[in-house]
């Protein structure tokens, strides 16, 4: 767990420069850069999911609950009180963390399939509430973020490029949080819980508290990202932001495709999955509804059957293969 070598630092710096400069290669208001924005946002979301699922192996299927809470919190604060989304984002994070605490308390003793079921239901509870509490959320018809003069203060931009940098910053922040947790005492404890919860308790790990802390951090970050989503799309409805397939499963899938429990996994996963999905949407949706979703599902199944540890495991696997080849 030592720091990075000078060569790795250089690589990282180059990568950062490339990531920052990338939007200039795209048409400023084109489709490509929007997809890139979404990919970064979903990478950050998958990274937030990775904190509980990847480190503690608590497989949540309900992170859409926090995401939706975040999207609605900042939007409603903006509509009703004119509060800037920057503050709204903090309020969202606080509410998202509180929601995570609320659902963690009864479900933290659950493991594996049981935990997945309970979180799935929690996400659905939020979706039903979002749809039926029309007075607050606008109900199934959705809600629009009021347009204003593009300004940084209101987190609305003339150029998609600026949104891109915002998403990039968000991804960097969430990834840094992930890495910091992974290397901290919290990270060691989460890993101990994942690998043997009883043994962890016996040698002094407060497993309940540890899992709740991780869940709250993850929920708060996811909610903050919900705010970014709202400010980026300007319009959303409960079925989108609280959706199982559209949010919860997608976050998870991106992390899994890239490599669950690793910092680079969600990023690789998002850069692969989101453009692919958009591409499938464009190519197929003219012909038949559902085809791109079908591709999405097939991809998930394929990844799980071929390499459930995702892209991140393919490198080492190839190396091993090559080494074997050498020996022969």
């Amino acid at each position: 767990m030592s720091g990075l070598s000078p060569r790795q630092w250089t690589g990282l710096a180059l990568l950062a420069a490339l990531a920052i400069a990338l939007p200039f290669a795209f048409e400023p208001r084109g489709y490509g850069i929007r997809i890139l924005c979404l990919a970064l946002l979903f990478a950050a979301m998958a990274q937030a999911w990775n904190i509980v699922a990847g480190l503690a192996n608590q497989i949540s299927l309900g992170h859409a609950a926090f995401f939706g809470i975040g999207a609605y919190t900042s939007t409603l604060l903006l509509i009703h009180f004119g509060i800037t989304p920057w503050l709204g984002m903090f309020a969202a994070a606080i509410l998202g963390g509180a929601a995570a605490l609320l659902i963690s308390l009864p479900t933290m003793r659950l493991r594996g399939h049981y935990f997945a079921l309970a979180t799935l239901a929690f996400g659905e509870v939020m979706r039903v509430i979002g749809n039926s509490w029309g007075g607050l959320t606008g109900g199934p018809v959705g809600i629009s973020v009021p347009f204003a003069q593009p300004s940084l203060a209101l987190m609305q931009f003339r150029e998609t490029r600026s949104s891109y940098w915002l998403m990039l910053a968000a991804l960097v922040v969430v990834t840094l949080v992930f890495v910091a947790i992974k290397r901290s005492r919290l990270g060691y404890r989460l890993r101990a819980i994942k690998e043997n919860a009883d043994a962890a308790e016996v040698i002094g790990v407060d497993t309940t508290r540890t899992k709740i802390i991780a869940a709250v951090i993850s929920g708060a970050l996811t909610a903050a990202l919900g705010t970014l989503y709202a400010q980026f799309q300007f319009f959303f409805d409960p079925d989108t932001v609280f959706g199982v397939a559209s949010v919860s499963v997608r976050m998870a899938m991106i992390a899994i495709v890239g490599g669950i429990g690793t910092a680079a996994g969600p990023i690789l996963g998002a850069l692969f999955v989101i453009p692919l999905e958009e591409f499938a949407n464009q190519v197929f949706s003219a012909q038949a509804a559902g085809l791109s979703q079908l591709v999405f599902g097939l991809l998930l199944i394929l990844v799980i059957l071929i390499e459930p540890r995702g892209f991140m495991a393919i490198g080492p696997r190839l190396q091993r293969l090559l080494r074997k080849g050498d020996r022969r």
Binding site: R185, R191, E195, N196, D198, A199, A200, I203, G204, V205
Partner: peptide
């Protein structure tokens, strides 16, 4: 009941986290 996917040192170290920094 070890933490099978961790190194021996990390296994033992986890025991020390109750009272110490990493």
């Amino acid at each position: 009941a070890l933490f099978l996917d961790s190194s021996v040192l990390d296994n033992v170290l986890t025991g020390g986290l109750m009272r110490h920094s990493i």
